[in-house]
Design a protein around this nucleic acid. Structure first.
Length: 218
DNA sequence: CTCCCGATAT
DNA sequence: ATATCAGGAG
Protein backbone atom coordinates (compact mmCIF):
# COMPACT_ATOMS: atom_id res chain seq x y z
CA UNK A 1 0.00 0.00 0.00
CA UNK A 2 1.33 3.40 -0.98
CA UNK A 3 1.10 6.09 1.69
CA UNK A 4 -0.40 9.50 0.87
CA UNK A 5 1.62 12.68 1.08
CA UNK A 6 -0.86 13.97 3.66
CA UNK A 7 -0.23 10.96 5.88
CA UNK A 8 3.51 11.49 5.69
CA UNK A 9 3.08 15.17 6.45
CA UNK A 10 1.04 14.35 9.56
CA UNK A 11 3.63 11.79 10.63
CA UNK A 12 6.28 14.48 10.24
CA UNK A 13 4.33 16.80 12.54
CA UNK A 14 3.99 14.04 15.13
CA UNK A 15 7.69 13.30 14.87
CA UNK A 16 8.68 16.94 15.27
CA UNK A 17 6.46 17.55 18.31
CA UNK A 18 7.62 14.36 20.01
CA UNK A 19 11.25 15.29 19.38
CA UNK A 20 10.70 18.71 20.91
CA UNK A 21 9.02 17.33 24.02
CA UNK A 22 11.08 14.15 24.49
CA UNK A 23 14.51 15.13 23.08
CA UNK A 24 16.41 12.28 24.71
CA UNK A 25 13.87 9.52 25.20
CA UNK A 26 15.55 6.17 25.72
CA UNK A 27 14.98 2.64 26.92
CA UNK A 28 13.64 2.58 30.48
CA UNK A 29 14.74 -1.00 31.13
CA UNK A 30 18.06 -1.28 32.99
CA UNK A 31 20.71 -3.36 31.17
CA UNK A 32 24.44 -3.40 30.46
CA UNK A 33 24.72 -6.14 27.79
CA UNK A 34 22.57 -7.40 24.88
CA UNK A 35 21.80 -10.55 26.89
CA UNK A 36 20.57 -8.47 29.83
CA UNK A 37 18.33 -6.47 27.49
CA UNK A 38 16.97 -9.69 25.96
CA UNK A 39 16.08 -11.03 29.42
CA UNK A 40 14.62 -7.72 30.63
CA UNK A 41 12.49 -7.42 27.50
CA UNK A 42 11.07 -10.92 27.91
CA UNK A 43 10.21 -10.03 31.51
CA UNK A 44 8.53 -6.78 30.42
CA UNK A 45 5.51 -8.51 28.89
CA UNK A 46 2.37 -7.22 30.64
CA UNK A 47 4.48 -5.76 33.44
CA UNK A 48 5.80 -2.29 34.25
CA UNK A 49 9.45 -1.44 33.53
CA UNK A 50 9.75 -0.34 37.14
CA UNK A 51 8.90 -3.86 38.33
CA UNK A 52 11.25 -5.46 35.79
CA UNK A 53 14.14 -3.26 36.95
CA UNK A 54 13.45 -4.23 40.54
CA UNK A 55 13.74 -7.91 39.63
CA UNK A 56 16.71 -7.67 37.28
CA UNK A 57 18.84 -5.82 39.81
CA UNK A 58 19.23 -9.10 41.68
CA UNK A 59 18.80 -11.39 38.67
CA UNK A 60 21.74 -9.94 36.72
CA UNK A 61 23.96 -10.30 39.77
CA UNK A 62 23.27 -14.02 39.92
CA UNK A 63 23.11 -14.95 36.21
CA UNK A 64 26.07 -13.56 34.30
CA UNK A 65 25.94 -15.40 30.96
CA UNK A 66 23.87 -17.57 28.63
CA UNK A 67 25.12 -20.80 30.21
CA UNK A 68 24.11 -19.65 33.69
CA UNK A 69 20.48 -19.26 32.57
CA UNK A 70 20.50 -22.50 30.56
CA UNK A 71 21.90 -24.59 33.43
CA UNK A 72 19.80 -23.09 36.23
CA UNK A 73 17.05 -25.17 37.88
CA UNK A 74 13.80 -23.77 36.42
CA UNK A 75 12.37 -23.39 39.92
CA UNK A 76 15.17 -21.01 40.90
CA UNK A 77 14.58 -18.80 37.88
CA UNK A 78 10.80 -18.86 38.41
CA UNK A 79 11.25 -17.75 41.99
CA UNK A 80 13.58 -14.93 40.98
CA UNK A 81 11.18 -13.48 38.39
CA UNK A 82 7.90 -14.45 40.06
CA UNK A 83 6.69 -10.90 40.72
CA UNK A 84 6.72 -9.98 37.01
CA UNK A 85 3.85 -12.38 36.29
CA UNK A 86 3.63 -15.09 33.59
CA UNK A 87 6.67 -16.56 35.30
CA UNK A 88 6.30 -20.11 33.94
CA UNK A 89 6.21 -18.88 30.35
CA UNK A 90 8.95 -16.31 30.90
CA UNK A 91 11.25 -18.89 32.49
CA UNK A 92 10.74 -21.26 29.56
CA UNK A 93 11.39 -18.41 27.13
CA UNK A 94 14.60 -17.27 28.83
CA UNK A 95 16.00 -20.78 29.17
CA UNK A 96 14.84 -21.79 25.69
CA UNK A 97 16.52 -18.74 24.20
CA UNK A 98 19.77 -19.39 26.03
CA UNK A 99 19.83 -23.08 25.08
CA UNK A 100 19.27 -22.20 21.44
CA UNK A 101 21.90 -19.46 21.56
CA UNK A 102 24.43 -22.01 22.85
CA UNK A 103 23.45 -24.65 20.29
CA UNK A 104 23.27 -22.47 17.18
CA UNK A 105 25.13 -19.23 17.78
CA UNK A 106 28.02 -20.02 20.10
CA UNK A 107 26.24 -18.20 22.93
CA UNK A 108 26.10 -14.93 20.97
CA UNK A 109 22.90 -13.00 20.18
CA UNK A 110 22.39 -12.84 16.41
CA UNK A 111 21.90 -9.35 14.93
CA UNK A 112 19.22 -10.57 12.55
CA UNK A 113 15.47 -10.10 12.88
CA UNK A 114 14.61 -13.51 11.40
CA UNK A 115 16.99 -15.40 13.66
CA UNK A 116 15.80 -13.50 16.74
CA UNK A 117 12.10 -14.08 16.04
CA UNK A 118 12.92 -17.75 15.63
CA UNK A 119 14.02 -17.94 19.28
CA UNK A 120 11.37 -19.19 21.75
CA UNK A 121 9.43 -16.35 23.38
CA UNK A 122 10.85 -13.70 21.04
CA UNK A 123 8.36 -11.95 18.74
CA UNK A 124 8.83 -8.91 16.51
CA UNK A 125 8.35 -6.48 19.40
CA UNK A 126 11.13 -8.01 21.51
CA UNK A 127 13.39 -8.53 18.49
CA UNK A 128 13.00 -4.86 17.47
CA UNK A 129 13.87 -3.74 21.01
CA UNK A 130 17.04 -5.85 21.06
CA UNK A 131 18.22 -4.84 17.59
CA UNK A 132 17.38 -1.14 17.99
CA UNK A 133 18.49 -0.56 21.57
CA UNK A 134 21.38 -3.02 22.00
CA UNK A 135 22.80 -2.90 18.46
CA UNK A 136 21.48 0.32 16.90
CA UNK A 137 19.87 -1.59 14.02
CA UNK A 138 16.55 -0.21 12.73
CA UNK A 139 14.79 -3.49 11.98
CA UNK A 140 11.31 -2.02 12.49
CA UNK A 141 9.17 -0.01 14.90
CA UNK A 142 8.57 -1.38 18.39
CA UNK A 143 4.80 -1.92 18.68
CA UNK A 144 3.83 -2.62 22.28
CA UNK A 145 0.62 -1.78 24.15
CA UNK A 146 1.51 1.95 24.23
CA UNK A 147 2.46 2.27 20.57
CA UNK A 148 -0.67 0.36 19.55
CA UNK A 149 -2.89 2.68 21.58
CA UNK A 150 -1.20 5.90 20.42
CA UNK A 151 -1.27 4.78 16.78
CA UNK A 152 -5.04 4.37 17.04
CA UNK A 153 -5.65 7.65 18.88
CA UNK A 154 -3.44 9.66 16.53
CA UNK A 155 -4.99 8.01 13.51
CA UNK A 156 -1.62 6.65 12.37
CA UNK A 157 -3.19 3.22 11.89
CA UNK A 158 -6.62 1.65 11.88
CA UNK A 159 -5.20 -1.86 12.06
CA UNK A 160 -5.65 -4.17 15.03
CA UNK A 161 -2.61 -6.44 14.99
CA UNK A 162 0.84 -5.29 16.07
CA UNK A 163 2.33 -6.57 12.82
CA UNK A 164 0.03 -4.47 10.62
CA UNK A 165 0.36 -1.39 12.85
CA UNK A 166 4.13 -1.72 12.60
CA UNK A 167 3.91 -1.81 8.80
CA UNK A 168 1.76 1.35 8.77
CA UNK A 169 4.30 3.15 10.99
CA UNK A 170 7.24 1.98 8.87
CA UNK A 171 5.44 3.32 5.78
CA UNK A 172 4.84 6.76 7.32
CA UNK A 173 8.07 7.45 9.24
CA UNK A 174 11.58 7.47 7.74
CA UNK A 175 13.73 4.53 8.78
CA UNK A 176 16.32 6.74 10.49
CA UNK A 177 13.64 7.78 13.03
CA UNK A 178 12.30 4.33 13.89
CA UNK A 179 14.44 3.60 16.96
CA UNK A 180 14.02 6.92 18.77
CA UNK A 181 10.39 7.20 17.63
CA UNK A 182 9.60 3.98 19.46
CA UNK A 183 11.15 5.30 22.67
CA UNK A 184 9.34 8.63 22.37
CA UNK A 185 5.93 7.09 21.71
CA UNK A 186 6.33 4.74 24.67
CA UNK A 187 7.43 7.52 27.02
CA UNK A 188 4.54 9.69 25.84
CA UNK A 189 2.13 6.78 26.30
CA UNK A 190 3.29 6.24 29.85
CA UNK A 191 3.42 9.86 31.01
CA UNK A 192 0.69 11.66 29.04
CA UNK A 193 -1.42 9.56 26.66
CA UNK A 194 -2.22 6.95 29.31
CA UNK A 195 -4.67 4.14 28.64
CA UNK A 196 -7.29 4.98 31.27
CA UNK A 197 -6.90 8.67 31.95
CA UNK A 198 -5.07 10.50 29.14
CA UNK A 199 -3.91 14.02 30.11
CA UNK A 200 -5.08 15.64 26.89
CA UNK A 201 -4.85 19.12 28.45
CA UNK A 202 -1.10 18.70 28.96
CA UNK A 203 -0.43 16.91 25.69
CA UNK A 204 2.06 18.45 23.23
CA UNK A 205 0.15 16.76 20.39
CA UNK A 206 -3.22 18.18 21.48
CA UNK A 207 -3.50 20.57 18.51
CA UNK A 208 -3.11 17.86 15.86
CA UNK A 209 -4.65 14.84 17.63
CA UNK A 210 -7.95 13.47 16.29
CA UNK A 211 -8.36 11.55 19.59
CA UNK A 212 -9.68 8.39 18.02
CA UNK A 213 -11.29 6.27 20.71
CA UNK A 214 -10.57 8.74 23.52
CA UNK A 215 -13.54 9.32 25.79
CA UNK A 216 -15.36 12.56 25.07
CA UNK A 217 -14.18 12.57 21.46
CA UNK A 218 -13.73 10.10 18.69
C1' DC B 1 -9.54 -16.49 19.83
C1' DT B 2 -7.59 -18.12 24.62
C1' DC B 3 -4.21 -18.72 28.03
C1' DC B 4 -0.47 -17.32 30.87
C1' DC B 5 -0.19 -14.15 35.99
C1' DG B 6 1.58 -10.69 39.82
C1' DA B 7 1.40 -5.76 41.25
C1' DT B 8 -0.61 -1.41 41.19
C1' DA B 9 -3.85 2.46 40.06
C1' DT B 10 -8.54 3.73 39.65
C1' DA C 1 -13.85 -5.12 41.59
C1' DT C 2 -11.57 -4.10 37.43
C1' DA C 3 -8.24 -2.28 34.01
C1' DT C 4 -3.61 -2.06 32.83
C1' DC C 5 1.32 -2.93 32.51
C1' DA C 6 7.67 -2.13 26.80
C1' DG C 7 3.81 -9.95 24.60
C1' DG C 8 4.05 -14.45 22.74
C1' DA C 9 2.43 -19.13 21.77
C1' DG C 10 -1.11 -22.62 20.84
Amino acid sequence: MAVSAAAKKFAGQVSQLLKKHYPDAKCSLNFSTPLELLVATILSAQCTDERVNLVTRELFRKYKDVAAYAEAPPKDLEKAIQSTGFFHNKTKSIQGCCETLLERYNGQIPQDIGKLVDLPGIGRKTANVILGTAFGIASGVVVDTHVSRLSQRLGLSQEKTAEKIEQDLMDQFPKKEWIVLSHRLIQHGRKVCAARKPSCGKCPLEAICPKVGVEGKG
